[in-house]
Design a binder for these strands. Structure first.
Lengths: 228, 228
DNA sequence: CCTACCGATCGGTAGG
DNA sequence: CCTACCGATCGGTAGG
């Protein structure tokens, strides 16, 4: 018995009652609402956090189940495999990141074509990227960056499309900056090196100690771009 | 002074008997030579390659043993645990990297103090770093960069010292470049962002397809530094 | 360094 | 979503 060694966070035994009752743990947001999607998303959120903290291989499906108050086999009711769970985390991360980036650029629509527009767009791209990587609770994209080695071939291919879509927004901005003399290095290498510099911040940035994301964005702009 | 060209660190036992009989696999380089250290180092090299390719958790000690023609339990004759093997890989990587960097800078001794010296030093630091990350067979430091999550607390502390030593060489160069106006961003953020940009190249650089390490170094210099 | 082995853990499943 | 379970794998070890 207690095959789980009860890593349960809060409650005792869950009554073996079907619908009507929920095992326990986090309170339901709404009462009569169909919440299957919520449970599934709770798994996603917990998995993202654990994958980021401990790594994919070092995180067991039991860890994830326990984090949301499920029993060991239950995550497989929502996801057909641990791999599928990882992929779902990454896919959601990319969709969120693309949406955030698109929204950040849309504020510049009116300014497009004006002299300072590419600089402003660049700033918003960088700031949006830092938000995706370092914002509170934003574990999904960091997991994607550091755990894609665990994906299958077709999963990698599928995610590569989203990454291409994400990075595509950078190219015209970089080209404009190159043409105006703000950027000296070749556009392709610039994109790779800049995104690398930003991505690496996951390894060292501490929201508690270090500066704000705006300060970080200022530093990145000053590092990569010339004044003219 | 870092007399660390030949790292020999954690548990070194004295094997009972040399030679006489070899299981099979790779041929011995020299016949009558004491090769205990060689066997140990073969394990290190194979482990570094596998850890880099598959990740630490996804690589079993059996994989490593098979890669050097040993049986499953034999790596534990040379290393007391899988963790110790990982740590030895990282330690050797850092010692090699520090030695390479020191040597790269020494060629500039005569130029120190001259106007263009910091630029030349910066170039050599970047080029040496790319060599450490992307040079053929240089798997040790990439493993350190991407697998340090698997280390224990004291191992992390010990490696942090080597990393600090390595990065210390960059600070005076960056300060000189900042003073001369070649670098606009704050020195601390510049160091973190620049090293991040370089470290990330492990993820995308392909020696077969992409440009040479010299071209890559040119691009990095052009991206980070102003002309003046 | 091999042989033979163990205890623990893990992803996943059948059936309800 | 729980109960009860399985086959596989893994790090590590005793003894030679």
């Amino acid at each position: 018995m207690t095959a789980l060694a009860t890593p349960r966070n809060s409650n005792s035994k869950s009554p073996p009652e079907p619908a009507a009752k929920r095992p326990r743990g986090r309170p339901r947001k709404t009462q009569g609402e169909r919440d299957d999607g919520n449970r599934r998303h709770e798994l996603l959120t917990a998995a993202a956090r654990l994958f980021r903290q401990q790594g994919f291989d070092a995180t067991s499906t039991r860890d994830i189940a326990a984090a949301v108050g499920m029993h060991s086999g239950s995550p497989f009711y929502h996801f057909k495999s641990k791999d599928a769970l990882l992929y779902a985390v990454m896919e959601e991360g990319m969709h969120t990141a693309i949406a955030r980036q698109t929204k950040a650029l849309q504020g510049d629509d009116a300014a497009t074509g004006k002299p300072g527009a590419p600089l402003m767009q660049m700033r918003r791209l960088i700031r949006s990227h830092f938000d995706t990587l370092l914002g509170p609770g934003n574990d999904f994209v960091p997991v994607m960056l550091y755990e894609h080695r665990s994906l299958s071939a077709w999963q990698l291919t599928s995610l590569a499309k989203l990454q291409t879509e994400y990075e595509a927004a950078w190219t015209p901005v970089l080209e404009a900056l190159h043409a105006s003399g703000h950027l000296r290095a070749p556009v392709k290498f610039s994109r790779l090196l800049i995104l690398g510099a930003l991505n690496w911040s996951v390894q060292w940035f501490d929201r508690k100690k270090d500066a704000s994301l705006d300060d970080l964005t200022d530093a990145a702009m000053a590092l990569f771009l010339k004044e003219c």
